[in-house]
Amino acid sequence: MLAYIIRRLWQFVPTLLGVVVLVFFVFNWVGGDPAYLLAGKISNPEQIENIRRQLGVDRPYYIQLWIFIKQIVTGDFGTSWATNEKISDIFATRVGPSLTVLVPMLVISTLLAMTAAMLVAYLRGRLVDRTIMIACTVGQSISILVYIIVLQYVLGYQLGWFPVQGWSQDFWQNLLRYSALPVLVGVVVSLAPDIRLYRTFFLDEINQDYVRTARAKGLGETRVMAVHVLRNAAIPIVTNVMIQLPALLAGAFLIERFFSIPGIGREVILAVERSDFPVIKAVTVYVAIATMVVNLAADLVYKAVDPRVQLK
């Protein structure tokens, strides 16, 4: 086990190096000279030269790459080009709001999708199953943008059930008042793909021998489904939710942007709009690290709950 973890951690090194080189290549080579971006429209050669020296882009590429690697290791990415805020501060203050929305959203949508998926898997092939599956396909084909626009307009603006957008300093007010509509939108959006995916997990289990055994020894359908099948189908579901988490942290940017929640996702969008390269670089590298760590954790959880899984 320990040997496995060490080997996996060791494998992080080349991958992470690849991510660093990719990000470096994209930003320092494809992106052109950032000094022109920073100097703005009205600038003179001395100013540009000055900025180039400050950023270190007048030095050879390998030194710049070395600076970048040092930044990652020390966690000191400097300051944002747009707001001069320290990048470590940006992270520290933006993770909280992101998680305030993400955690309830993930918990609610997973529980709902699991219940619905168990039901349709049990009724597979029947009218209910087919209707829900078609509804999911149609639901998935509507852009997430439309869900956000319409739900925000109807529930927030017209009916006034929720605040249209906003955020406060108080955790409980954020969680109960301002997160409610974003969480609802997130749940609605993720329900269709989740039900479809989890249904296949349940279908894999329903045809197993142990289910027949459970029925043969006279257990009720509720117990067979809710205890035997559910516990086995929950294994891929839990790891699937875990793997989604890092991508969601940065990927919830649409929801965060529409509801102006000061989270990581909105920060990414703002950084992209303002060509704020240090912020995007830092987010990309850290999310990549988080993805690798979470994937490893998911594999370990899988191993812990499913003795059939062999780690190699």
Binding site: G251, V272, I280
Partner: peptide, 23 residues
Amino acid sequence: WLYSVFTSIPYLLLILAIAAVLN
């Protein structure tokens, strides 16, 4: 290796980063 590099960055984040740079 190339695959693990590309998949360790979330898809939409990678797209946005490249879009930001290409501008």
